[in-house]
Simulated scan of single mutants.
Amino acid sequence: MQTAGGTTLSEDTQPDTAMAGKPERDDDTPERASRRRPGLMLACYLIAAAAIGLDQLTKALILDGVEPGEPVRVLGGLAYLSLTFNSGAAFSMFTDYTWVLAIVATCVVVFLVYLARRIVYPAWAIALGLVLGGAAGNLVDRYLRAPSHPGDPLDGNFAQGHVVDFISVFEPRGEVFAIFNLADSALVCGVILIVLLELTGRGFSPQSRRPKGEPEPER
């Protein structure tokens, strides 16, 4: 069809009309989000490494300066340094299955290392870095602390090291809340952040953030 001036009204010469209805590309598209992966993966690993390093440093200082059964009052009584050795999981559960916990924790750490390669949002780099660092921090204890002897995996104690816990809030000896360490803190904070991200619609992948019914952008 032609107007009097000779201009056509076909779709071929109406780019605005041709593009109508197509979703605009934004930073949530898989193509653009994937460009962030190397940097965010590195950030995740660095956060995890920092959590592991700080956890192991504080454990070494506590082992050197605090005796088991002799809590040290800090922060005006808000917390106590109560050195304990935990063979179980959080809150001293499954104390008779230390090696099983070590295997489970190893699988979790390997999975998180792989998952970090797919991070496309900064908040998820923080969350997964904290969880990875917390899980790996305690896993170091499982493999390297007594009664484990990593040089002889056949001695019956392999991967049965006891985790060093030392933070007791409000009262000594875990009288108010279970004694924990910095790895536990990192792990809990990371899990809480993950839950908040999911509840607020900030999913792990761009696809999970797309409103229901919205078509995927064309590549």
Rank of each mutant, 00 (worst) to 15 (best):
L9S: 11
L139F: 10
D141N: 04
V108Y: 08
N157Y: 10
D141L: 04
G69P: 14
E171T: 07
A186H: 06
T95L: 10
V188M: 05
G190F: 06
E216M: 11
L182F: 15
D26A: 09
L57H: 08
M93I: 13
F158T: 06
P153D: 09
V66E: 03
V191F: 14
L63C: 06
I192K: 05
G39V: 07
S148N: 01
F111Y: 15
P68R: 02
R37P: 03
F85T: 00
L130C: 09
L83F: 09
P147Q: 00
S185A: 11
A49P: 00
A33P: 04
L78I: 02
P206I: 13
G39N: 10
F204G: 07
E11L: 13
I194A: 08
G65A: 13
P122G: 02
P153K: 10
F91T: 12
V104S: 03
A50E: 08
F158L: 05
L42C: 08
Y114E: 11
V163N: 00
T17F: 08
Y45K: 03
G6P: 15
L196F: 12
C107E: 07
L83V: 01
G134N: 10
A116E: 14
G88Q: 02
D55E: 10
P215V: 07
Y114K: 12
P122H: 08
G201P: 10
A102K: 06
P68G: 09
L42S: 04
V110H: 04
G151W: 13
G129H: 03
V140Y: 12
P150S: 05
F158D: 02
G203P: 03
F94L: 09
A18S: 11
V72S: 05
G156S: 14
A125M: 11
I103N: 09
A79P: 00
D27P: 01
G203Q: 12
G133K: 02
S208R: 09
D96V: 07
L182W: 03
A18V: 14
L199I: 09
G134E: 02
P150R: 03
R35E: 14
A49C: 03
V72C: 07
V110P: 00
A18E: 05
V120L: 02
L128T: 02
G213E: 13
V113E: 09
G53A: 15
A49Y: 06
Y80N: 01
E31F: 12
F111H: 07
L193T: 08
